[in-house]
Design a protein around this nucleic acid. Structure first.
Lengths: 217, 217
DNA sequence: CATAAACTTTAGGCGAACCTAAACTTTGCT
DNA sequence: AGCAAAGTTTAGGTTCGCCTAAAGTTTATG
């Protein structure tokens, strides 16, 4: 069984690749909260295990084996998030941290029983797709709210789950998964916007708009 | 936060003390599946942390702090066992191993939400009492089935949960928590017995009778 | 296009948790 | 009591995952 650290590294690399960014030493160090030198160290071990390809000074890329591991971790993480909200009444912003630990101690049987008890869900509480058992991941054709323009009418399809404060903030504004938004204004100079939610108008910064994915309504 | 190893050691020591046995180096080594020398090593670290009292060659004893930790771990373990059976349809014999991992990654909030979702249960699926949040543990006034004699009529109050094979075996015989048993025969020379469960008679070895606790019916 | 700034790796170390082999205590037996 | 067997500790080593400081490489800029 892989260690918790191994899983955390693989997940961090996967996330960077997902976002289209290069998984560099410094980016990983920032994400994982460890020193740069520790990344170089660990990366060598992971590359020996065939989880990633490493060329000094060039960053890393997951191998098929590494990607498969990442998807397994993501699957368990998202199943737990669903479970915590559905069965234990956890709120949106509290599930991530908890799932972050549970994902590492989940047997195949438990993974399956969770899936079953939840009715084989396809997305987690933040709208992220749950990878299937064999590692398939449907990627949504949604786009960033920050890319929308005044006049656009959209539905919230996905919200980044790794910042509890942000989630709490947007929940407080009345934003919810699948909720309707109307973009009223967009300031060119800083990308901030005014959006209508229900009957209310809210100002949101670019930072927030960058964490929300939407689909045309 | 204590490490997983620390929690495993504390739990193992607690269990030995519970059974009235001395927590010696070799007993711990056997329970934890590590070399004797590793126990001596770790025990020194734990004693520096104030979790136990250690006198070379004399075995160890938990301090109040250590006992409190042990009860917390036990509480989380048993809540998870309940949860797995009640919410995910796990069977008697499969919950222990799973809870063994989950107990180490359970926040206070999660512990409380589990407790709540289960309706604040007082015993786990094997009849073991669940310690309260503040470390109180009601000990049952039950006794070993192996101590019963022919003619006794009893109810199963508790079954050791750490041997999946044994649990599977007794479940297969039709034994269940709170189920009625009638002791028909007891062989003096090896402690084995014949007991009636429902309408059926079963032969059980002393080893099995030593894992089952009963109360007068 | 040289050089400073930014980034990455190497070198050397540390603590946790394990190991084996050897030395030392305690216990139990005759 | 004396001595062997059983149990325990010490000594010395390993791997994992981290650290800091120093050296090396890449990139960006004047």
């Amino acid at each position: 069984m892989p260690t918790i650290s191994t899983e955390d590294y693989i997940k961090a690399i996967y996330k960077l690749e997902e976002k289209g960014e290069r998984a560099t030493t410094s980016a990983l160090a920032a994400h994982l909260g460890v020193a740069d030198a520790s990344i170089t160290d660990m990366i060598k071990r992971l590359s020996e295990k065939g989880l990633l390809r490493y060329e000094p000074y060039q960053g890393v890329r997951l191998t098929a084996k590494g990607r498969k591991m990442a998807l397994g971790i993501l699957r368990r993480h998202r199943l737990w998030e669903m479970f915590l909200t559905q069965f234990l009444g956890y709120s949106w912003d509290r599930v991530h941290e908890e799932a972050e630990r549970l994902e590492h101690v989940t047997s195949e049987e438990l993974e399956h029983k969770l899936d079953e008890a939840l009715g084989f869900p396809s997305v987690d509480p933040h709208g992220h797709p749950i990878p299937t058992k064999d590692g398939a991941l449907v990627d949504k054709a949604d786009s960033l709210l920050s890319a929308c323009n005044a006049g656009d009418v959209v539905r919230i399809s996905r919200v980044d789950d790794d910042d509890a404060k942000l989630l709490q903030h947007v929940a407080h504004l009345g934003f919810a998964l699948n909720g309707k938004l109307v973009v009223k204004e967009k300031k060119a100079f800083d990308g901030s916007m005014v959006v209508k939610v229900g009957t209310k108008h809210h100002f949101i910064s670019k930072q927030v708009a960058d964490a929300i994915f939407v689909e045309p309504a």
